[in-house]
């Protein structure tokens, strides 16, 4: 029965997202393609965070760093005239993975609140680095004149084509995180989250597993960064601002921690809601703020917990 509900949920989700461009095309509302594409890019970032936060229990308050690194990788290569996506995207993913590996190696030894703060501190450092590098626009950021080129296979400047690319990559990421979480590796990760001492006792050192997960999450978020850079055709240190890390974190929680659909649902609701509220009143934050508080207090399962079929197992 549950499996049935899950199947329906995912089928509806995939179909709705896949049908969006033709539907809004008929309605002459192309803006929603832009909005939902942005939502899906953030869903990739949120899904990557969910791997370490939801399944691994590592509350990283600096996940926006990889959004920035992925974005800057695309921007910097394009600045030097290297526009091939075959080069840019692997560099974006690889650079994010490397930085995540370095940050993780230092941070994962810390726990709880210390971990939250140390990941935040590293991201702040990268943020200030971004501001002070003049070659790449410093605080102003930098325009990306040519979007990533894929040997003519796909034109990222075409909103609909890039929408479908993001769609595929997003479901790919969600599926990948889903598989990792249910693999033997993921089991160890989750076991260490619920009881670190016990998982040590049965012979697993959580450190290397966590570091590995942290690096994978960084790499996936780097992909989101590369996509975001192509989406806005612009990069700025603002990608790495600490409030951005907070937003990604909130998407995960709102959607439902440690659920496959959660990051997408959270990104969708938060960004659509933000756009609607901002269009309604400039004081939208006074409404959004208490809603965040209320959702944390009363909405512990997240959206995935209340939508039939959206939850896992």
């Amino acid at each position: 029965m549950r499996a049935h509900a899950q199947l329906i949920f995912w089928a509806v989700l995939v179909a709705a997202l896949a049908l969006l461009p033709p539907v809004v095309g008929v309605l002459h509302e192309p803006f929603y393609v832009e909005l939902v594409r942005r939502v899906m890019i953030f869903a990739i970032a949120a899904a990557s965070l969910n791997l370490i936060l939801g399944y691994g229990g590592l509350v990283s308050f600096g996940h926006a760093a990889y959004l920035g690194i992925g974005g800057y990788a695309v921007g910097i290569l394009s600045f030097y005239g290297m526009n091939s996506g075959w080069l840019q995207w692997p560099v974006a993913i690889g650079a994010s993975a490397l930085v995540a590996l370095a940050i993780g190696a230092v941070s994962i030894r810390a726990s709880g609140m210390y971990f939250i703060m140390i990941t935040l501190a590293f991201t702040q450092m990268l943020y200030y680095l971004g501001i002070s590098i003049e070659e790449f626009g410093g605080d102003d950021g930098m325009r990306i004149k040519t979007r990533s080129q894929f040997s003519g296979l796909i034109d990222l400047a075409d909103p609909v084509a890039s929408y479908y690319l993001v769609l595929v990559l997003m479901f790919g990421t969600i599926y990948l995180v889903h598989r990792i979480a249910r693999s033997r590796f993921g089991m160890v990760l989750r076991a260490a989250k619920s009881n670190e001492a016990r998982s040590r006792a049965i012979g697993f050192s959580p450190y290397s597993y966590r570091l590995c997960a942290f690096t994978i999450a960084g790499a996936l978020c780097g992909l989101a960064g590369a996509l975001l850079a192509n989406h806005t055709a612009y990069i700025t240190p603002d990608f790495m601002h600490w409030t951005r890390s907070g937003e990604i974190m909130f998407m995960v929680i709102l959607g439902g921690v440690a659920s496959s659909a959660g990051p997408l649902l959270g990104a969708l609701v938060l960004l659509v809601f933000e756009t609607l509220l901002a269009g309604w009143t400039e004081h939208w934050q006074v409404i959004l703020g208490p809603l965040l508080v209320l959702s944390v207090i009363f909405f512990r399962t997240g959206l995935a917990g209340i939508i039939p079929g959206a939850g896992d197992e």
Binding site: V59, M249, I253, V257, V286, L288, G289, L292, V293, V296
Partner: peptide, 15 residues
């Protein structure tokens, strides 16, 4: 701690 961080993040926006 995660819930604390998020709820108080909401309070920042509000205040």
């Amino acid at each position: 701690h995660l819930d604390h961080v998020l709820a108080t993040f909401g309070l920042i926006l509000f205040f």
